[in-house]
Amino acid sequence: MNGQGLIKGLGITLKHFFQKEITEQYPDVMPELAPRFRGCLQFEFEKCIACGICVNSCPNDVLSFETEKSENSKKKKLLSYTIDFQYCMFCNLCVEGCPKDCLHFDHDFELSTFSRDDIKRVYLRPAEMDEEEEVETASMQDEQENKEQNKIEAMSKALQKNPAKILAQVLEQEEDIKILSELVQESEKTALKMAELLVKDKEKAAKVAAGFVTKEKKNRLQAEKGGEE
């Protein structure tokens, strides 16, 4: 007391006068950020599966997306993904929830914008992704065709080997089956045709099979007649 405290205080400030300054020289020297630092939320469109977990886990309705049912598969197609950043409170819940790791925070903390509209970020579906998808579907069709071809071939072989069993699917009378079986075994062309139809369309196969049979019956009748003559 009696001034000693004052003098001690003066001593402390004097000591700091000669110490190194601690001011951060931002923006001349960017601060060193910890690896976990959460700056700006980034979204990777390609990885997202539009599952909606992020939207549901966000407390502040920052995130939203639009989807479209794609024609040739049950998968939802992501059209756009919106981050309305002005409401984000950097809580990391969305990032932790995402099963595909498509959300992450980068270290960019300079988020000020001149207008409110600039804060909102909309990710549109990149054009490359649509092209990729077309190629994908095309190749898928090819693949399917290949598969069918293989099936047909297998079927025709099976027909030639054991026709009765297979043809029972399309014909009812045993006589007819026997006739067609003979036919199939004789000509590969018929076998292939039958096989294709069997794979693709059973009803049509039945009709065509019946047609084959009647035709053959007629042929045979005429042959018998001719023989008699």
């Binding site: 400030t13 700091h16 006068f17 000669f18 110490q19 190194k20 300054e21 601690i22 001011t23 020289q25």
Partner: peptide, 10 residues
């Protein structure tokens, strides 16, 4: 400047 130096600022 002087006040800044007392407070470890620049």
């Amino acid at each position: 400047k002087v006040s800044a130096f007392f407070q470890e600022r620049l």
